[in-house]
């Protein structure tokens, strides 16, 4: 067959194509593994679509039995006196307990922290604040979880940072640990102060 005639100009590039693709994929995988270690690549992280935008319109009732004013979008429209945190939480959520001391510390430092209580019972939410302390200036109650959907919340706890113009600048899904507070949140609070 063609073995008899010597091949003229072999199209070498075609034979190199699989190697090139494999090498590119390998480089990509290596970048992912590196990113996994330094945190720049997180296969589970989902960015908020609200970044750089004002909060969606909403008005939530106050939590009965807790002496805190209710929360509405009007309270979060700029200009604000300083950066504001909005924290979605629930008494049944274990990571919320882990994050609570950090919220308390921020509140003591004078940062405005507002809360939205998500799918919770009134009694248990109140008891939670009594036991762990209350970091919130305003507290809205979102029992059906409908406002949370407007914010794009996909689990509790979840925390949003608003700048003085009332624009959402940062969203953290999961508990704010002491580490998160120092490494991620503090620099942002300074920047938007």
């Amino acid at each position: 067959m063609s073995d008899i005639t010597p091949p003229k100009r072999p199209r070498r590039w075609m034979l190199y194509a699989p190697l090139g693709l494999a090498a590119a994929a390998g480089a990509g995988f290596y970048a992912m593994l590196q990113g996994l270690q330094d945190g720049s690549y997180d296969p589970r992280g989902v960015p908020s679509v609200l970044l750089g935008k004002p909060v969606p319109d909403f008005s939530l009732p106050a939590l009965e039995g807790v002496d805190l004013p209710a929360l509405a979008a009007a309270d979060l429209r700029g200009p604000l006196p300083g950066p504001v945190l909005v924290n979605f939480w629930a008494s049944w959520c274990a990571p919320c307990i882990i994050e609570h001391p950090q919220l308390m510390r921020l509140a003591r430092e004078g940062i405005a922290v507002h809360g939205i209580n998500y799918k919770d019972r009134v009694m248990e939410a109140g008891a939670f604040l009594q036991r762990h302390g209350n970091p919130y200036r305003r507290l809205g109650r979102d029992e059906p979880g409908r406002i949370a959907i407007d914010w794009g919340v996909y689990g509790v706890p979840e925390t949003y940072l608003l700048d003085r113009q009332g624009m959402i600048r940062w969203r953290w899904a999961g508990p704010i640990t002491a580490d998160t507070l120092e490494k991620d949140l503090r620099p942002l609070l300074r920047r938007y102060a």
């Binding site: 960015p47 908020s48 679509v49 959907i149 794009g152």
Partner: peptide, 10 residues
């Protein structure tokens, strides 16, 4: 579109 606007492409 309603859900997409809230949760993004993901």
């Amino acid at each position: 579109r309603f859900v997409h606007q809230r949760y993004g492409d993901f």
